[in-house]
């Protein structure tokens, strides 16, 4: 379809709308080869030409890997297509005359900056709390010194593929970030280099997760369904296991 007409219901917040509200826009001339963000570009260009305030939305790589884009489209974080970021969603999945509702990630730990842009510093702070292996530059031994079983390396990768977009939190009815934390804990726990500080890592990351005000996981699995990289909730189970073992099975009193 070369020329779709859409009704867009977009959350605006900041500037003219300090409390935030939905504003309706009509957009025609939408081509089905456009990406969703290109469709918003077209709308913004029109708004700018009318000297109106364009819609703020975050985006960068537009190839599904940087994790910047963060739109809830018709109730789905990143839109209705699974394992697809909003930037990789194309308009061919919508129909002429559709009404599309666009909202930001909604979580207390992701305060809104403007319109559809949220602040995800809380994710950085969780990684800073322990999402790393303590190795200084130059300390490494030869890369092949420790073999890692192919499947295990692959499982570690399945967790490491997280792009830190926050769709898991946006999707979770509890606004929990367990999939994000689980992915990092699980990635690093599955490589021998990361096992050394696995106990303190999981303790510190969970403490930070809780301090940031994320909700508690109740195994709904909406996170996995909306994760653009399809990261499985089995990594949350590994996180739980690690947490229990590192508390009850470790002689350390405080981490």
């Amino acid at each position: 379809m070369e020329n779709m007409k859409l009704k867009l219901r977009i959350w605006r917040q900041g500037g003219k709308f300090p409390q935030g509200k939905f504003v309706d826009y009509e957009l025609d001339g939408v081509n089905d080869h456009m990406s969703f963000l290109e469709m918003l570009d077209v709308l913004n260009e029109k708004l700018i030409n009318k000297k109106e305030d364009p819609i703020a939305f975050e985006h960068d790589c537009r190839e599904g890997i940087c994790g910047t884009c963060s739109l809830v489209i018709n109730g789905y974080p990143h839109g209705p297509m699974q394992q697809t970021t909003a930037c990789q969603l194309h308009m061919r999945h919508f129909r002429d005359g559709d009404t599309i509702t666009i909202e930001p990630w909604r979580s207390r730990a992701f305060p809104i900056v403007k319109d559809l842009v949220v602040n995800r510093d809380s994710f950085d702070r969780i990684i800073q709390a322990g999402g790393f292996i303590s190795v200084d530059t130059g300390q490494a031994q030869d890369g092949n010194a420790i073999p890692i079983e192919k499947d295990q390396a692959s499982h570690a990768f399945d967790a490491a593929t997280c792009i830190g977009c926050g769709a898991c939190v946006a999707a979770c009815p509890n606004a929990s970030a367990m999939l994000f934390v689980g992915a990092k804990v699980s990635h690093l726990a599955q490589v021998p280099q990361g096992k050394v500080e696995a106990d303190s890592r999981v303790q510190r990351m969970i403490a930070q997760h809780d301090a940031e005000g994320f909700g508690r996981c109740s195994n709904i699995t909406a996170c996995e369904a909306e994760c653009p990289k399809g990261i499985s909730v089995e990594h949350i189970a590994r996180l739980n296991r690690q947490y229990i073992a590192s508390t009850l099975g470790s002689e350390k009193v405080a981490n």
């Binding site: 292996i133 390396a153 490491a160 280099q193």
Partner: peptide, 17 residues
């Protein structure tokens, strides 16, 4: 070497290398 030590999950062969 550095990347492996940081936990980067590079592709591996069946022998783990």
């Amino acid at each position: 070497d550095q990347a492996v030590a940081q936990g980067v999950p590079f592709a591996r062969e069946y022998g783990g290398l």
